[in-house]
Amino acid sequence: MAKVKYYYDPDSLSYRKIETKKGKKIRNLALFFTAAAIAGAMGAIILLNLNIINTPKELALERENKQLKLNFQLLNKDMSQLEEVVSYLEDKDNNIYRVYFEADPIPDNQRTAGFGGVNRYSNLEGYDNSEMIIEARTRMDILKKRISIQSKSLDEIVHLAEDKEEFLEKIPAIQPVRNEDLKRMASGYGWRSDPFTKARKFHYGMDFSAKTGTPIYATGDGVVARADNRATGFGNHIRIDHGYGYLSIYAHLSKYNVRKGQKVKRGDIIGYVGNTGRSRGPHLHYEVWKDDERINPMNFYYGSLTEEEFDAMLKASSLENQSLD
């Protein structure tokens, strides 16, 4: 119940009841609510500008922004782990794979180079988090480039490995006469005494002394280029073209076990020891050629000799004795 208000009337020396006119009361109420609305609006504007409180939309955007920053942190962590893995692969690629297959290493500045020219990320500028976004995008692009380069390098290594496997099968790699069939390794590569003239002469192959009819083995895969007796001093001889510039010669044979144009595999019997041509006794004269030059066959026995057998063979072949042809 509203309180009744009085005022003192000095004329009548008594208290009289205050009568509020209805229109005035309504006007006072209107003024009060107007002032309250203005004060509320001003307070809201001040609070919003001071960032003391946020609208629901702003709160939602703030949560979304925090989530995006968290996702960027996780992305950067994942990229760091990928960069470590790629760096490990690049190191093995340069220092093991490419070295083994005789390929030039890929320079680090080529693997990790950025992108020159126009600004690739101009469309990402002008935002609150532009710097963070551009940094992440740059790292990702460089990482993608490194992975692409590494992928191409591994494709090259696979191709080289396949070629290397074929190469290793073809080049001469075993002794043409088995140790158990040998009488002795009669003469090696180098200066020797000619058995006919006794003059000092360079011997371009190795002589293996063995009984007539002892099997002779192809030292690597290849194609028989010649099987005849039309080479001066060699008598019956065989030449095998191994590819990659390699050729092997087997001379003074008693008979052939292959013909010209025939494909042979390492370890196939291609002929038998004899004493034909310019020879002082039954033996095999064996030569290895590379790019039309004769080289020391001692470098091509890694596929059939133990370390001790190789050392013994090396010692015997280095003696400057008399050759058999």
Rank of each mutant, 00 (worst) to 15 (best):
R139Y: 00
Q67G: 07
S14R: 15
S187T: 04
W191G: 04
N257D: 11
V4G: 03
N49K: 15
I142D: 09
R192A: 04
A161V: 08
D104E: 08
K290G: 04
Y15M: 13
P56Q: 13
I134Y: 08
I46F: 15
Q81P: 02
R63Q: 13
S304R: 00
A44Y: 14
L89I: 08
S248M: 04
Y272Q: 06
I149Q: 03
R259D: 05
A37P: 09
G271Q: 06
I46M: 09
N129G: 13
G233E: 06
R178V: 01
F33M: 07
I142C: 09
L74C: 08
Y8K: 06
A227W: 00
I249H: 04
F234H: 09
A231S: 13
N179S: 10
N65Y: 11
R111S: 05
I38D: 03
I52A: 06
Y15P: 05
S317W: 01
L89R: 07
V264C: 10
S318R: 09
Q175F: 01
S209N: 11
N123H: 12
T112D: 09
N51E: 13
R16C: 14
S130Y: 04
K24C: 09
M140V: 03
G267M: 04
I106C: 08
N299E: 00
E64V: 09
R120Q: 06
E83Y: 01
S323G: 11
G205Y: 02
K25C: 12
Q73W: 02
T20H: 08
S130G: 10
D9R: 02
G267Q: 07
L182G: 01
D325L: 03
E19G: 10
F167V: 00
A227V: 05
A173G: 15
Q175H: 02
A35S: 14
D11C: 06
Q67A: 12
R137D: 05
R120L: 15
T34A: 11
Y100I: 14
S318A: 10
S80V: 05
D104W: 00
L284W: 07
S151W: 00
D181C: 08
K263F: 14
D163H: 12
G188R: 00
M185T: 13
V273P: 09
F33Q: 11
I240D: 05
N299V: 00
G233R: 09
L324P: 05
Y204G: 12
I149L: 14
V86I: 14
K77T: 12
